[in-house]
Design a protein around this nucleic acid. Structure first.
Length: 297
DNA sequence: CACGAGACCTGTTCGC
DNA sequence: TGCGAACAGGTCTCGT
């Protein structure tokens, strides 16, 4: 589920609590009704910085990638949450002694509730906080993973650059695309090439850049690469500004789904030219593009 | 190196 | 109504 903007939103929520999306209805299409209980604020929007972990519980063993369960309990209890960060799609809780790394994969979410609330159906790992709140890693599909480590550097070693870093320049992107001989869509999804893009934001970036998802990377011109770099940053910024995307049953307060131009809009008219959006499968992922605005070759 | 298929999982939606 | 297939924001591994 979550891509860079959603993970960034959760990190900010856990750090500060964050103002909610008060989405104006103007560009709204495909609007889904948010779950009534979350209309004011999603449960991830409660700050946890400064709180101390007084208990922990693992309900689905595979969720905990490292260390083993007993060591996890022994090590994490007593540590304070000092800061919350993000690298690629990883959420990072900086604890007083170690780092707690969380990858939400397809269906993960972080939910903060008072201890008096019952556990949610898909809570896989929970932390008890000293102010009588509970931080739950909730993950319907069980793909998510959690690591408690002294130094997470090895986990991040293979990742490509952050899209908002100084390293991600038009020149870097053009050169990097030249070095590969791959289709753009799967290449942009490859976290070792560039960190943070997922299926939604890749499709949206390529549409705004006017590039076909199957374009061979080595054929992208300098001008096109520069444009693509800008649209990637633009789409991610828009996503963050709207607190990420909320689709299907996972609602965490974001509203960027109301601004999708191609994702999930197969057969609907392109908002630029009116041509029906095409949906095809590329690398086993649903891929959406406008055949008019994003010609191949 | 590039690419496709299969795994890992549960839940929703759609067609018959 | 029931039931199977397709599909879902991600990533890893294996075979060609």
């Amino acid at each position: 589920m979550p891509e860079l903007p959603e993970v960034e939103t959760i990190a900010r929520n856990l750090r500060h609590g964050h103002p909610r999306e008060t989405s104006p209805a103007e560009h709204s299409y495909r609007v889904r009704e948010p779950r009534a209980e979350y209309v004011t604020a999603p449960p991830s929007a409660i700050p946890v910085v400064g709180k101390t972990i007084t208990g922990a519980q693992v309900f689905w063993p595979r969720t905990l990638a490292e260390p083993d369960e007993n060591s996890f309990y022994h090590q994490i209890i007593g540590q304070q949450i000092e800061e919350v960060g993000r690298r690629a799609k990883y959420l990072i809780l900086h604890l007083s002694e170690q780092k707690l790394i969380i990858h939400l994969r397809m269906s993960g979410d972080i939910i903060i509730t008072p201890l008096t609330e019952p556990l949610a159906p898909h809570d896989r790992l929970t932390l008890t906080l000293d102010d009588q709140y509970r931080l739950a890693f909730n993950d319907t599909r069980k793909f998510g993973r959690v690591w408690l480590m002294d130094d997470p550097t090895p986990l991040f070693a293979g990742l490509g650059p952050e899209p908002f870093s100084d390293e991600f320049t038009p020149e870097w992107l053009h050169a990097a695309l030249q070095k590969k001989n791959r289709q753009l869509k799967p290449l942009l999804l490859d976290q070792t090439f560039l960190a943070g893009l997922g299926n939604i934001y890749t499709d949206e970036s390529l549409h705004r850049a006017g590039l076909h998802p199957l374009t061979p990377s080595a054929l992208v011109s300098e001008t096109q690469a520069a444009r693509l770099r800008d649209t990637i940053r633009e789409v991610l910024s828009d996503g963050i500004r709207h607190n990420g995307s909320s689709i299907d049953w996972v609602y965490r307060g974001g509203g960027f789904q109301n601004y999708f131009r191609v994702y999930g809009r197969g057969d609907e008219p392109c908002l630029t030219c009116g041509t029906p959006i095409t949906r095809m499968v590329v690398g086993q992922r649903g891929t959406h593009f406008c055949p008019q605005c994003q010609p191949l070759g």
